[in-house]
Structure formats: structure tokens, C-alpha cells
Amino acid sequence: MSIDEKNTEATELEEKDDDFVVEKVKQGDKEAFGVLVMRYHREIFAFVRALVRNQHTAEDLVQETFLKAFAHIHTYRKGNFRQWLYKIARNCTIDFVRSWNSKHTDSIEEHASIPDTRTGTDPHQLLADSELVAVFEEALGTLPPALQEAFVLKHILEMNYTEMKKITGVPVALLKVRVHRSRKRLAEHLKHFLNSFREKAL
């Protein structure tokens, strides 16, 4: 097969749905798996990144997720590949957080690097994007994992409750409660932070 033919085939595959591509992978086509990696690595990364709050760890976990998916591709049954992938990512992340917590007495928030550039900032200047992100991550880190997960799926990944239920196995009513609580607590945390930021700046 010439390179051109290969490229055409790859492009064609990019337009196919997940189950079609998975079938190719099952038949031994490793390249086809690349289509799935391209398709989902960003959102899986966003999911994991929000939960572990560290770029490198998140990338490692995304890698682990895809390697596991590849190794167990034969156990995937037609349906929803994306959800299946999320479940794997979720398990990898849970395992990581557990082992991290057992090895480190300090909580996982320490893992996130929060730049403290607050002192001496012009009071009228808004928080820089990176700082705002750091504040958000800090706030997220103060929540229990179940609330973190609910918030991330709902608002970072903008999923609906049915999807969330399929991925987490948690009933919709409980997910709604968790999302509500997480928002409230995050908003509170942000308020405190912004107030103290203003005081400091003044």
C-alpha cells in the first residue's frame, strides 16, 4: 500500500463512527486506534486534569487510559465508546488519587502548583487568567472527590445528567444534589478568595 493510499484510508477512518473504528482496531489495525486517540484525548485530559490538578500527572493518566483501552479493546461491546473511555479514565484517576493519598499525608491539593502573585498587585487590575485558573483549581481541590467529579462532568465537560449517570453509576437525583453543593461551595470559596485578594491589594 502506498503512503497516499494509507493517508486516504486514515482520512476516511476519521469520518467513521467510533464503533466502526474500534472494529478496525479489533482486527489488528493499530493506526486506527490513533483516530480514537485524536478524537478523545483532549476531553479525557480536561476531565483528568481537573481532578488531579497537575499537567504531567494528567498526561500520564491519559496515556494510561488509552493503553488500558487498547489492551482491553476486545472487552468493549458496541454502544458508547466515549463513555467506556471515561469509565476507564475515571478508574485510573481514582486509583491514582488513592495511592497518592496513601503515600502522602498532605492532600492532593499540594499537587497543584498555585502561583502566589497576589501581593503588590494593582487593586484595579483583574486577576490574570492563570491566577484565576489557579484559584479555581484550589477551590476545586477543597471539595470532596465526589463533588469534584460531579462538578467537572457537569460544567467543565458540559455533560447531561444521563451521561453522567452512565459514567459514574450514580443516580441522577444524587448527581444533581452533588452538582448543586459543589457549585455552592466553589462560589463561596471564590468569594472568600476574591475578598481577601481585594483586601490584600488595598
Binding site: 483532549r42 480536561a46 481537573a50 484565576l132 479555581f136
Partner: peptide
């Protein structure tokens, strides 16, 4: 605002 920034900045290498 904070999580939208996070959304747009959380990018893998």
C-alpha cells in the same frame, strides 16, 4: 469565569 478559563486553558501537550 474561573472555570471557563480553566476549560480553555486545560490543554494537553
Amino acid at each position: 469565569k474561573s472555570y471557563s478559563r480553566f476549560q480553555s486553558r486545560a490543554r494537553p501537550s
